Simulated assay, not measured.
Amino acid sequence: MLLSIQLAGVRMSTGGLLGSLPQTFEHIESVTDGLTWWTVQEVIDLIGKGVFFYVKDSFGNVARVDVVNSGNPAQRSFIKTHADGKISDNLLALPGGPLYRSGLLGKFTSSNSGAF
């Protein structure tokens, strides 16, 4: 049986180093279903084991979370949503993300929504 997890929020991180390069941009550090928090690496590992992560907007549109590998061993993999044809940056529009905070795309929903 395939385990499906609807994501309800993100935690962003800024600064620090990626390899030897300084980071000055925000990136997703971890995600939650409203009950459990996972680091991006944990989500990548779980997707590799067949777990299906997704986000759903208030209209019911579902976007699957995928792993993106840069192909460069010096750069780490990251997660993003598969284009759903409705809206971009689905993860960043979840509570805790910059698009949600700005009010631009804060129309995402979760059955386990809570404070982030």
Rank of each mutant, 00 (worst) to 15 (best):
N72G: 05
L99T: 04
S102A: 14
L99S: 06
D66S: 11
R64Q: 12
K86L: 07
P98T: 08
K86S: 09
L94F: 02
R101Q: 09
F59K: 15
N69Y: 15
G97H: 05
R101F: 07
D66L: 09
N90D: 13
Y54F: 15
K86T: 09
R64A: 08
Y100D: 15
S102R: 08
S102W: 10
L99C: 03
V68M: 10
V68I: 13
N72S: 11
N90Y: 04
K80A: 09
R64F: 01
G97I: 05
N61K: 06
K86R: 15
Q75T: 11
R101D: 13
A83W: 07
L104Y: 11
G97A: 07
S58Q: 14
G103W: 04
F78Y: 15
G85F: 02
G97V: 07
T81C: 15
S58A: 10
L92R: 12
R101I: 11
P98M: 09
D66A: 06
Y54I: 08
R64P: 04
P95E: 08
S77P: 08
V55M: 01
L92Y: 07
G96K: 01
Y54P: 06
I87C: 05
V55Y: 02
I87V: 08
V68H: 06
A93R: 00
V67D: 05
L91Q: 03
F78W: 15
S102I: 07
A63I: 01
P95D: 08
V62G: 00
H82Y: 12
G85P: 01
R76P: 04
Y54C: 04
D89M: 10
P95M: 08
S77F: 01
S70M: 03
F78K: 08
F78R: 07
R76F: 06
N72D: 12
K56L: 05
V55I: 13
D89R: 12
P73H: 13
N90W: 00
R64T: 11
D66I: 13
N72C: 11
I79H: 06
V68D: 04
G97Y: 00
K86F: 14
S70Y: 05
N61L: 07
D57R: 03
V55H: 01
H82W: 05
D84T: 08
F78C: 11
S77C: 06
L99N: 05
D57Y: 05
V62I: 15
R64M: 03
Q75R: 13
L94E: 05
V55L: 09
L104R: 14
G97T: 03
L104W: 07
I79R: 04
D84P: 03
L94G: 01
D66E: 11
L91Y: 05
V55R: 01
N72M: 10
N90A: 14
N90C: 13
L104M: 14
N69T: 10
N69L: 07
G71A: 06
G97W: 02
K56Y: 01
Y100T: 12
